[in-house]
Design a protein around this nucleic acid. Structure first.
Lengths: 226, 226
DNA sequence: CAGAGCCCTAAGGAAAACTTAAAATAGCAT
DNA sequence: ATGCTATTTTAAGTTTTCCTTAGGGCTCTG
């Protein structure tokens, strides 16, 4: 876990750096806004602790530049007591958290934990099967990067099969998961939809296992992927 | 944007609720921990403002229960001046931000903006989706630099969709976040407003996903994803 | 090679979404 | 307060989408 500490007060800097290192972080120190901006731009930090009253370039400006450049690293801002209007502008510039000096080191550490935890919790479950990708959060799928245009049932079918890829899935199982209880057992909808799906993602990708069901799998030449 | 305000002081509650509503939020109020826990459990809020000194069940306990149940709604905690050890335990219980009483309403609003924005995964204070821009601070939006003239509901609709762009958002989700508890479920307001928004920002930008909802996305030539 | 299992196509029909206009409500200034 | 305007909601009519059905042809297997 690597942290950028942008703070000009030498005493506070030394003390904070020590505490952070004790807590297991790797710490780089920037004594002014110019250095802070440069480091934040070039190095991949997990979090930045940014004092607003920095020499050369002030903290809010540094932050604004980063955000304008698309940096999303979490930033915790330090500010002097009572300068609450700084806070407002800092937040609106894209800060993720604030701390007023003087503060207890323990509180800073707690806030850091919260920030990093939050930033890391951004992993989204993306289903992949060869060149086929499905993002359940976005309700969207693609083949070889090309977005797929799927109807509701087609999507649900693909979703279920991606969740259970490489396994043979019976027609009954599919029906049970795609429809509610009462559904005409001897209907051929599943077959029809298999046909449509195949047409959209490539026939080869869904194998028919006669008498048992269907299996979704990557193409032969794709198997090595992920 | 729908918010739960859990605060027992009647004066402060009234004043805060008014300020929040002025700022365009839909606000539900819980005067004690029991009510707060119940509402937070049943309604989908975009953010919770939680006083630690609540009657019946105290704030930290309420928060702990939510987190144990897997709730990830951002929570901003209000606490009395000087009780900083509360903060630490509150953070570790899963709070996302802290504010010490007394505070400036403007600061609370700034922190709320930051929280909501962060929860949606945006570091930038300015929401961008292709040629559409929305500045939550100024409550302004534009298309290709051209300022948009939006009514209150149109704006809130666009705001919510920009926070969750590229994701399919159901009619239900929209209704739940744009209105408070009692709203007629089978009404077609959302459809009507989608029509109006589309007329203003361009039909292509809002894709309807039949049976699921709507998705706001950049135009084809503006960006490609997945 | 016969029969079961599967695939394909096209069209009917129903649900979902869109459009429009008018009624209801809220907001604002007089 | 009162009326005027802007906004929101309701409601009805229209269009679009796509789920389902059914029938003929194909393929695999015993």
């Amino acid at each position: 876990m690597r942290i950028l500490l942008a703070e000009d007060d030498p005493d506070l800097s030394r003390q904070l750096k020590a505490s952070l290192q004790d807590a297991g972080y790797v710490v780089d120190h920037a004594p002014d806004g110019e250095e802070a901006h440069f480091l934040g731009d070039t190095e991949p930090y997990d979090c930045v602790i940014l004092d607003l009253g920095l020499p050369k370039i002030d903290g809010v400006s540094v932050l604004e530049r980063w955000r304008r450049d698309g940096k999303t690293t979490p930033v915790l801002i330090l500010t002097a007591r009572g300068a609450w209007s700084d806070k407002v502008s800092g937040f609106d510039a894209g800060a993720d958290d604030y701390l007023t000096k003087p503060f207890h080191t323990e509180e800073l550490l707690a806030r850091l934990r919260a920030l990093v935890r939050r930033a890391a919790g951004h992993a989204q479950p993306l289903l992949v099967c060869g060149g086929v990708r499905l993002d359940p959060r976005a309700a969207r799928a693609s083949v070889n990067g090309e977005p797929l245009r799927l109807t509701s049932l087609e999507y649900r079918l693909l979703h279920y099969m991606m969740l259970h890829q490489n396994r043979v899935i019976s027609r009954t199982e599919l029906v049970e998961h795609l429809y509610d209880q009462d559904f005409d057992r001897d209907s051929n909808t599943i077959e029809v939809f298999m046909g449509r799906l195949r047409k959209k993602i490539g026939t080869e990708r869904i194998e028919t296992v006669r008498g048992l069901g269907y299996r979704l799998k990557p193409l032969h030449n794709e198997v090595s992927e992920i």
